[in-house]
């Protein structure tokens, strides 16, 4: 403890206060430099765009998650919402509903899930972790029983503009990357300059105080989860358009953990009130660089996972050494 303090003071004085975001950013830059020198073809514009393409869905999901995490929540139903609502849209399209109408239905379903999440958290006062955990399995189960007959739903033969969302390009930049950038810009503006954004930070910082000072915390929660689900739906559209199908089995995968990692790794604390879009971008970049480099090196998938985990752990440990938590100020129940 004592050593840590000394260390942290030194660090604060000399290293210009290293936050987790900066650590992760430095790590990303470092990896980037290493890969650029050691891997042929890594630093090419084409590969870098591909890299961005590959993580843009993760990044969009990260934005969605960041919104609720900043408000001291979490949304574990994000992947289920995304997969089931989009898969339902695709099913409807295959059944002959027009693309626009089907997507509208899917969007309304996602929004509905988000609002139910928010309502349960705000009014029934169920902890977000459990509410969304339960909602995730519930949505998946309901979707598989009632809405979607098979676990992989394919895109229709002629998806039109919808297909361009995944396959199209603008000035040589793939559409998913553009979607990620656009959403990042919008999220930055909303979080920074709108009442909705500022209230989200207040609620994350101190929910009770925000409530007492007149922030409409309950409607705010409903809105946050609604918006998060909508962004999740958008991420699902991009996924579906880029691989011509929606695989509902991803609900049972560890994808939700990857999304949380992107958010937390970037430096948005799970205790809320901190961080922003920049953190999501930094976290996404690190994961993207890692995955891309390792794929180029043809490292086995399981080893990739191991390396990814080890690097994440290293980042967490480093952050804890630099910014140790204090026994006296740590919040109870802040896990």
């Amino acid at each position: 403890m004592r050593n840590n303090n000394v260390f942290s003071r030194l660090a604060r004085g000399q290293l210009l206060s290293l936050t987790q975001e900066k650590i992760v950013f430095l790590l990303a830059v470092l990896l980037f430099a290493v890969f650029s020198f050691s891997l042929t073809g890594f630093a090419s514009v084409d590969n870098l765009l591909g890299l961005l393409y590959n993580v843009s869905v993760l990044g969009v999901l990260g934005l969605a998650m960041a919104l609720v995490v900043i408000g001291r929540g979490i949304d574990l139903s994000l992947i289920a919402t995304m997969a089931i609502s989009v898969a339902w849209s695709l099913t409807l399209i295959r059944d002959g509903v027009s693309i626009e109408a089907a997507l509208l239905y899917g969007m309304l379903m996602a929004l509905g899930i988000g609002i139910i999440n928010g309502w349960l958290i705000a009014y029934a006062e169920i902890p977000a972790l459990f509410c969304t955990l339960a909602m995730g399995t519930l949505v998946y189960g309901f979707g598989r029983i009632a809405l979607i007959p098979v676990d992989v739903v394919y895109m229709p033969a002629d998806p039109g503009w919808f297909g361009a969302l995944g396959q199209g390009e603008l000035f040589g930049i793939p559409a998913p990357v553009i979607v990620f950038v656009l959403l990042s810009v919008v999220a930055t503006l909303v979080l920074r300059y709108t009442r909705f954004g500022r209230y989200t930070y207040y609620m994350g910082d101190n929910y009770q105080a925000a409530r007492i000072t007149g922030v409409p915390t309950r409607p705010m929660l409903v809105m946050q989860y609604g918006v998060t689900a909508l962004i999740g739906f958008a991420a699902g559209l991009v996924t579906a358009a880029s691989v011509d199908s929606m695989n509902t089995r991803i609900v049972n995968s560890t994808m939700i953990y990857d999304v949380i990692l992107v958010v937390v790794l970037g430096g948005i604390g799970l205790s809320g009130g901190k961080g922003g879009v920049r953190n999501v971008i930094v976290g996404t970049l690190l994961i993207g660089i890692l995955l891309n480099g390792m794929t180029i090196m043809n490292i086995e998938y399981t080893v990739q996972n191991f390396i990814k985990g080890a690097i994440l752990l290293a980042a967490l440990i480093f952050d804890s050494l630099i910014n140790p938590r204090d026994e006296q100020t740590a919040q109870q129940g802040d896990i």
């Binding site: 949380i260 086995e300 399981t302 080893v303 191991f306 752990l313 967490l316 804890s320």
Partner: peptide, 22 residues
């Protein structure tokens, strides 16, 4: 080291799973 439990065990979940798979 006072790391956060949720995120730390999330990472060890991935690490140990990768180890088992290997």
């Amino acid at each position: 080291l006072r790391l956060r439990a949720f995120i730390t065990t999330l990472v060890t979940l991935i690490l140990v799973r990768a180890l088992v798979d290997m």
